[in-house]
C-alpha cells in the first residue's frame, strides 16, 4: 500500500468499525483510530509496503504498524515535533508537518518504535481500555 494515497485511511476506518462492533468506549476507539490513521499515513507516505496489525484484549488495544521501506536514520530527530522529510504530495493531503509520530505517541498509553535504515520501521502502540470495560 506504499505510495497509494487514494485509499490512505481505509484500514483505520475498518479498525474503527471493528472496535465499534466490540462496543468499546468512544474515546478509546477514537484514540485507536487516530493512532492507526497516522501510522497508515506514514506507511503510505514513506514505505514500500506495510501492514497494520490490531489485537484487542479486554484490558487494551494493541496496534502495530510494520513496514518495509527506507527506515528512520535518527529516531530522536524524527520524534521532534515539526521535523519532517515529507514531499509536496504528502503536504497537499494535509500531512507532513512533522506531527505524525508525536501524535501517535501522545495518544498512546505505551509507544515503542524501532527502525532499521533500508529495511523498515516497526511501531507498537498500546491503548488501555477504560475500567468500565474491564468490569463489564
Amino acid at each position: 500500500m506504499g505510495g497509494n494515497f487514494d485509499n490512505a485511511g481505509e484500514v483505520s476506518s475498518n479498525i474503527k468499525t471493528v472496535l465499534k462492533q466490540i462496543g468499546l468506549p468512544k474515546d478509546v476507539i477514537r484514540k485507536a483510530a487516530l493512532v492507526a490513521y497516522e501510522s497508515e499515513i506514514n506507511i503510505v507516505s514513506y514505505a514500500r509496503k506495510g501492514m497494520i496489525r490490531l489485537r484487542v484484549v479486554p484490558e487494551s488495544i494493541m496496534i502495530e504498524a510494520i513496514d518495509e521501506g527506507q527506515g528512520i536514520p535518527d529516531i530522536e530527530q524524527a520524534m521532534q515535533p515539526g521535523f519532517s522529510t515529507a514531499n509536496q504530495k504528502i503536504r497537499e493531503m494535509g500531512f507532513g508537518a512533522g506531527m505524525g509520530l508525536c501524535n501517535i505517541k501522545s495518544f498512546s498509553d505505551v509507544f515503542h518504535i524501532s527502525s532499521e535504515v533500508g529495511k523498515g520501521t516497526h511501531l507498537r502502540m498500546i491503548i488501555r481500555a477504560s475500567s468500565a470495560v474491564l468490569n463489564s
Binding site: 487514494d6 490512505a8 485511511g9 483505520s12 476506518s13 474503527k16 494535509g94 500531512f95
Partner: peptide, 9 residues
C-alpha cells in the same frame, strides 16, 4: 479524501 478520513476518525 483525507479531510473526510480525518473527520471520520
Amino acid at each position: 479524501p483525507q479531510v473526510v478520513r480525518t473527520a471520520d476518525v
